[in-house]
Amino acid sequence: MPAFSLEPSQTARCAQLRTLAAERLRPLAEKGEPGHVNRPLIAELGRLGLLERLFSSGALDLCLMRESLAYACTEAETALALQGLGAHPVHAHGTPAQRDRWLPAVSEGSAVAAFALSEPGAGSDAAALGLRAERDPDPAADSPAQPAAVPDGASRWRLTGEKCWISNAPEADFYTVFARTTPGAGARGVTAFLVPADRPGLTGGALDMLSPHPIGTLAFDAVPVSADDVLGEVDRGFRVAMGTLNLFRPSVGAFAVGMAQAALDATLTHTAQRDAFGGKLRDLQSVAHTVAEMALRTDAARLMVYAAATAYDEGAPDVPKRAAMAKLLATETAQYVVDTAVQLHGARALQRGHLLEHLYREVRAPRIYEGASEVQRGIIAKELYANPEVR
């Protein structure tokens, strides 16, 4: 399927999702408490079958879901995306036991997932992780008076350190955690672990962030894990992280495109109705040209997102570059479109509760998380020089 064309069934599905988001998800989002997991909203996403689709469809479908939900309810979009981000490593790299334990609960919306990569000293530089996974060779390390905290896998570790800026922390039910198993090995010495939230030694705290969903810290005080908790292979967790981000970065772009389209549509309505200077705002050439620029950039970003998602689904060799390009262009575009929409609306757009006031707060973070814009430019340049044959 060409990246620039959607099938009629896909277009109809997007329209249906917008309606569902407005009628069934937005009311639940509005009842949520800022800074806390909205479990009724997540449960409704499960009842609608949207969470299950995170594991049964491809990157393009994920992008279409995120774009459609973002247009009508950014909180629902984010709740869905965080479930996918936290649980995708389990789906892609987990053992049958890990998948059977967690994926059905994530799909039905009864278990909340989180992706724990960033640290106080390792945000954009993900290879500089400091959370330590130290070997625990003594199977009797757990007190005889207490049951073992983890199954007796072939290998055991204790996790010590911190994670920071983790979405859904500290309220998630389990975390995909990336820790250093081999000191001094850079990206080659990182392992991914599935860590249930009730593991002894694992605590967390909330951060007061510009975000409706919880973002927090995690503290690991000799948290026990075993080989049964490893996702993928020991010392190859960076591949798990990058593989997950290569899937989700284009869909972050789709989230941004959904917000940009909502801002653009609001601007079209406002400028067509607003009386100013003896006519309508749209009659001013400067306004008309600005709206045209907003539409141009939004469509260009959408095409880049769809192209990157299609490349991922087809297993193209340049997925890292395309994913980075899609996230970079779409998030920077959305920032421009929403900011411009606020300018054309004037002071009313800054009133608490206005659509654009909401989007103005929401649109900033995607330029930072899952790799800041500067990181995306670095990835693009690296891929261009390393793989000239797929430019």
Rank of each mutant, 00 (worst) to 15 (best):
A92H: 00
A92W: 02
H93Q: 06
T95C: 04
P96R: 12
A97W: 04
A97M: 11
A97D: 01
Q98W: 05
Q98E: 01
D100V: 05
R101Q: 07
P104D: 13
P104H: 08
A105H: 07
V106C: 07
V106N: 07
V106E: 12
V106L: 09
G109M: 01
G109T: 03
S110K: 10
S110M: 01
S110I: 00
S110R: 13
A111E: 04
V112D: 00
F115L: 06
L117C: 12
S118R: 10
E119G: 00
P120L: 01
G121F: 15
G123M: 14
G123N: 11
S124P: 07
D125E: 08
D125T: 11
A127T: 04
A127H: 13
L129V: 13
L129H: 06
G130N: 03
L131D: 08
A133P: 08
R135D: 15
D136T: 08
P137E: 04
P139A: 13
A140D: 15
A140R: 12
A141T: 12
A141N: 03
S143I: 02
P144I: 05
P144H: 13
P144S: 07
A145W: 10
Q146G: 13
Q146C: 10
P147W: 06
V150Y: 06
V150A: 15
V150K: 06
P151I: 14
P151G: 14
P151C: 12
P151H: 07
D152W: 00
G153T: 05
G153M: 10
A154M: 09
A154H: 05
S155P: 03
R156T: 00
R156V: 00
R156N: 03
W157R: 12
R158K: 11
T160Y: 08
T160P: 09
G161E: 08
K163I: 04
C164Y: 14
C164N: 11
W165G: 08
I166C: 05
I166H: 09
S167E: 15
S167C: 09
S167R: 00
A169P: 09
A169W: 12
A169M: 06
P170Y: 15
P170N: 11
E171W: 06
E171F: 10
A172W: 14
F174V: 06
V177E: 03
F178L: 08
A179H: 02
A179V: 05
R180C: 01
T181P: 07
T181S: 15
T181D: 12
T181F: 11
P183V: 01
G184F: 06
G184A: 09
G184P: 07
G186V: 10
A187Q: 12
R188V: 14
R188L: 15
V190G: 11
V190P: 11
A192T: 04
A192C: 14
L194S: 05
L194C: 07
V195R: 00
V195D: 07
P196R: 14
A197M: 01
D198W: 03
R199D: 10
R199T: 13
R199W: 13
G201Y: 15
T203D: 06
G204V: 02
G204N: 04
G204P: 11
G205M: 07
A206Y: 14
A206C: 08
L207H: 10
L207S: 13
D208V: 02
M209K: 08
M209C: 07
L210G: 04
P212A: 03
H213L: 15
P214N: 04
G216N: 03
G216V: 06
A219W: 00
F220S: 03
D221W: 15
D221C: 14
D221Q: 12
V223C: 05
P224I: 04
P224K: 00
